[in-house]
Computed example of a mutant assay.
Amino acid sequence: MEKVRTIIEPPKATFLPDFGEIWRYRDLLMLLAWRDISARFRQSVVGYGWAVLRPLITSLIYTLVFSIFIRVETDAPYVIFAFAGLIPWMYFSQALMSVTGSIVGGGAMLTKVYFPRLVLPLATVAVGLVEVALQLVVLGGLMAWFRYVPGVQVIALPIFILIAVLTALAFGIWLTALNVKYRDVGMAVPFAIQIWMYLCPIVYPITMVPEKYRMLYALNPLVGVIEGFRWCLLGSAPPDWTMMAVSLTVLVVVLLAGMAWFKKVETTFADVI
């Protein structure tokens, strides 16, 4: 009988995570994502209705303030203008906070069993996509009410959803690695998100940003995402592709650098936690 030999080799020297290994642990990734999805609104009376109520009520408040009290001119009715901008922003903000706490929250698993540590942030960013789907359905109803029909550009919407996911992951993996050692990071993120919101064209159109500052403004990757959502759904002016290129460049740099940093420090997570 031929003997079976198992050869254990050190991981290849690369600055990026082993995505092949992550793929082999895809069942764990899906299990963790489903666990978080089912636990998100457990023992809640409204349940997943909160995924709809939060952006809807926020949009109505913004409409009252910025469409009646303070006149902000938009190409579409303000309520759907605000709602379309809030969908990617609420996904990003919630995902960023969840990813930041994912490694610390999974500390019990880290100290008992081996698995690629990047599975925890990846499972977390997938959870909010269920809420995005529900919110898009509600936005579709509002658009039907105002007789807005998306054009053919709506087929590009999944691309901007993917960019939103990558943006949350790019900044989140930096923060979750830092949060393991410095727990102040987790407490500072909600405050940073509040400031970040005003640097995004959510309550105002990008046309209100002076031309000379737009390239600087585009360093925020969410600018392109929010403008892309509105273009796909409301048929507004297409994004400035130069600004989009700047946003995507920043996103790629932050994502690659974050993955490299995460891989460098992930072996210390179990010891520090």
Rank of each mutant, 00 (worst) to 15 (best):
L134C: 05
M208E: 15
L122D: 03
P55M: 09
V137F: 09
P221M: 07
P116T: 05
D27V: 11
A237R: 13
G224Q: 05
M143E: 06
V252C: 09
A84C: 07
P190K: 12
P11K: 01
G235Y: 05
L28M: 11
D27I: 11
F262R: 05
V46L: 14
R54D: 06
Q135M: 08
Q194M: 15
V125S: 07
R42W: 02
V99G: 03
N220K: 07
G49K: 06
L31R: 06
F269N: 06
D75V: 05
R26E: 07
I22W: 04
R5S: 12
V113L: 13
T111G: 04
P10S: 14
W89A: 04
P239I: 12
S59P: 10
R214Y: 10
I61E: 01
D27C: 02
Y198H: 05
Y48E: 02
F66I: 00
S247Q: 06
I163F: 10
T124Y: 03
L139E: 02
W174D: 03
W23R: 14
R230C: 04
R54L: 10
F115I: 02
S67G: 15
I173F: 05
V180N: 08
L120I: 10
A170E: 01
A260Y: 01
I161K: 02
L60M: 13
T267D: 14
E266I: 06
G224V: 10
K112N: 11
F146E: 11
P77C: 09
Y78M: 02
E2D: 14
Y198F: 14
N179L: 11
V189R: 05
E227Q: 15
L251M: 02
K3M: 09
L166E: 01
T14E: 13
G128F: 03
D75G: 04
G235H: 05
V223K: 01
V252P: 04
M1F: 14
L166M: 15
V272I: 14
P55G: 08
L118K: 03
L157F: 04
D240G: 01
K112W: 00
Y204G: 12
A188L: 15
M243I: 07
N179C: 06
W241G: 00
V46Q: 07
P121A: 00
L32F: 14
T6L: 15
Y217K: 09
V154F: 09
P205R: 01
E227L: 07
V185G: 10
L64I: 12
F19A: 08
V265L: 12
L233D: 07
G49R: 01
F171Y: 02
I70T: 01
V45S: 11
G151Y: 06
T74K: 00
P150K: 04
